[in-house]
Simulated assay, not measured.
Amino acid sequence: MRVAVVSESFLPTISGVTTSVCKVLDELRRTGHDALVIAPFGAPPSYAGFPVHTVPSLSYRQFPVGLPNPRVLGVLADFEPDVLHAASPFLLGAQGIAAARRLGVPSVAVFQTDVAGYASRNHLGQATGLAWRFVKWVHDGADLTLVPSTASMKDLRRIGVQRLDRWTRGVDLESYHPNTRHGAGVAELRRRLAPNGEVVVGYVGRIAPEKQVERFRALRGLPGISIALVGDGPSTPLVARALAGMPVTWLGRLAGAELAAAYASFDVFLHAGTEETFGQTLQEAHAAGLPVVAPRAGGPIDLIEHGTDGFLFVPDDDRDLRRHVAALVTDVSLRHRMGEAGRRAVLGRSWETVCSTLFGFYQQVIDENLAMRAETLVPAAQRR
């Protein structure tokens, strides 16, 4: 299978979209398929042995945004893909889908970023409706749109997008593992984060408006805790002001073994943002054996079984957020039970497993495309 991946985000930018795309490429390489990547300027020239073609981009909130470019059609035509994978399509992804359709190549779009949620959060009024219309226009061009959660499915059905199916995300079950907490590096980090035996409430992700990390202020005055934040982003000054005077350790952006050690040093994982279409870091926290607290909104609804492997708090209710975190802080046995349940919940979500499902969707649209072509070649008299 020859797969062209058009991604709105790619290395060196770290995001959920980038992580997902890299894992898919790793699995394509492992299983013997061929691929190429089209991504915003600044990406490396290759990944996993596959060529990476870049297009001009502009910077928006520290993210490069790929701009439509005539080169996209030429790159796709030269590669002759069997299928196009549009990762979180926006401007670049929309062009990729359109180019694929022009070339007769089927496309799979992966809905991963709540574009319209940005307009709503920033009180842009009529712009919210325009954003949803743009989302519908982009995804109507694809042969199949894969959504990560029941909430996303509901949103896209509401605006009239057809041809939808569910595709979850994988998680690295080896790197994020409860046994990691017994490593020497984790013990050293624990001494830094909790010098007096505090319960560490951690977060991993962008420090950006949609993540609402400033809501950690709801934990102010909660005894016996320390807060550890992994990540960076444009909201760092705002969050720093909101959490001034609280026991916060800023760990910055981490990856690889350092990120796994950070998860292993936490006791509770808290995600406060209400706009997650999925919530990859929640899965990683569960894989590490942590109880997770997140809002009853968007992707977390599918990832957390309330009262079993974590808690879902009422969105925008800081008192409810604090109440659930406090319950875990004061009950070590509850933390352990929920952490073990979280680990069990993700055991069937290895990247190998979920990519196998994705490749099945690729084959589905390829087969449908071939059937449609064959149908057009049959003379009308024979079809009667």
Rank of each mutant, 00 (worst) to 15 (best):
T19Y: 01
G231P: 08
P209W: 00
I225Q: 07
L130P: 01
R157L: 12
F41N: 11
L76C: 12
G298W: 06
G129P: 03
M1H: 11
I207H: 02
E174T: 13
D309S: 14
G233P: 00
Y362Q: 04
Q95Y: 10
A151K: 09
A98P: 03
V201Y: 05
G273L: 03
T308S: 14
L347D: 13
H85P: 00
D172E: 15
A39K: 03
L328S: 07
A116M: 09
S333V: 08
L312A: 07
P234N: 03
S226V: 07
A294Y: 07
A244I: 09
V65H: 00
V329E: 07
Y60A: 01
T145L: 08
T236P: 00
E210N: 05
R133L: 12
I14N: 00
R384Y: 08
G221A: 11
S152K: 06
D331N: 14
D316G: 06
V3P: 09
G342Q: 11
R343T: 08
R29N: 11
L312Y: 08
R181E: 10
T353Q: 01
D302N: 14
T54R: 01
Q382Y: 10
L370D: 05
V115E: 12
S107A: 15
G360W: 01
P295A: 08
D267Y: 06
W137K: 06
F63T: 00
D302Q: 10
L251A: 13
P12W: 02
S350W: 02
F134H: 05
V6H: 00
P237F: 05
S15C: 03
A86N: 05
R217L: 13
G245E: 12
K211Q: 09
P195I: 01
L251K: 13
G160E: 10
